[in-house]
Write a protein that binds this DNA or RNA. Structure first.
Lengths: 197, 197
DNA sequence: AGCACATCTTATCATAGGTCAATGCATACC
DNA sequence: GGTATGCATTGACCTATGATAAGATGTGCT
């Protein structure tokens, strides 16, 4: 099995050489999930992070009334995980399932350490990704605190034009914290304005 | 100058011994900010993280219309920072100022490395804090996506009863993503219900 | 081809929360 | 002691978004 995206990621973002990547390959496991199948359910202990080699995943929680709140999408070269659950070995309160048939690379809690032994830069590179992740989360919180549905949508389209095209609209609505109907209205209004000008 | 909270934090959460802590002390710098003074403004490069020894800080952004969105409060033993700005040495888009007169310990980007040299567990402990932080952010996003003002307020009170008592109500409203008037109404409704029962 | 099911749209109505303005309290300041 | 300032509350009104329900469109499955 060849994993071109995983390879690229570790080389470009992880700072590894081709040879170092080859050393890692024997240890890695992959997992395929079909559309709508789960990688993680509430109550499970999340034993791995999932690198998306090909496909789309979603990471979400359910509130008391059963409403889904989508926290994150992941397309190629993204990593999703309930980090808390992996790290602390506690039951997760989240779900991960596949939006499309997806091929993932399973990364266990020792993955970073193992790779760092091969190339010590990797730890640093990994920290960069973590810090960037936190930045994104702060940015997302800012938007949720202060911006209208319309602005949130525009930001989303701007930030993730690719995801726009691959996930159904009602999931985007969930990611934005609005109903599908509201998103439909927002889009209609935007289309109208655009047409006028 | 003695820093009992900083001491406790590094020993209890960082896993250091008293002796190791003593080794660190010579390198640390503190900074005092009066109420309403700034530690960071938009456009600055955030050169330090700030550990709160005594007092309360707030971390916020301003949107285009000048509305403040409070991302975080920090009381004793918390660390605030625009991590992205510290890490990547880029201008921040955030503000940090003092809600009360506050004594902080300034931690530069090498702090973790320096301490890790003295006690190698520290890196791990630090990662635990980071992971916990991410967990909190996810939880916050879930609430903002799916919960009413009332539920968000109740969660806040439950999670941070101490902060409740130390910051003005309009700041809590900002943290919750609602107006002070709305928060006042939510509180009124809750008080009424409580009285009935 | 035809049916079942998903998704998206549209319309109507309901409501949480925003906006604006006035009032009442504290507390700091002169 | 009096005045100014910041904060919380309240009321009247408004608006964005939610809820519900009914089509419209599309797409996979048999």
């Amino acid at each position: 099995m060849t994993l071109p995206n995983f390879n690229k990621h570790l080389i470009e973002k992880g700072g590894l050489s081709e040879e170092e990547f080859a050393q890692i390959m024997p240890f890695i496991k992959t997992k395929t999930v079909k559309k709508n199948e789960f990688l993680l359910k509430q109550g499970d202990i999340c034993s791995h992070s999932f690198f998306v080699e090909q496909g789309v995943l979603r990471f979400y929680s359910l509130n008391e009334e059963g409403k889904e709140n989508i926290l994150q999408f992941a397309t190629e070269k993204w990593i999703v995980s309930d980090r808390g659950s992996v790290f602390f070995q506690e039951p997760s309160t989240y779900y991960i399932d596949a939006v499309e048939d997806t091929l993932t690379v399973m990364l266990d809690e020792h993955f970073v350490n193992k790779v760092a032994k091969i190339n010590s830069n990797f730890r640093k590179q990994n920290e960069i990704l973590l810090q960037n992740h936190i930045r994104h989360l702060y940015n997302r919180i800012s938007l949720l605190l202060g911006a209208s549905a319309r602005v949130r949508y525009l930001e989303f389209v701007n930030m993730y034009p690719d995801i726009m095209l691959r996930v159904p609209q009602w999931m985007i609505a969930s990611y934005l914290g609005i109903t599908p109907e509201s998103l439909s209205r927002v889009r209609k209004a935007l289309a109208k304005e655009h047409f006028k000008s």
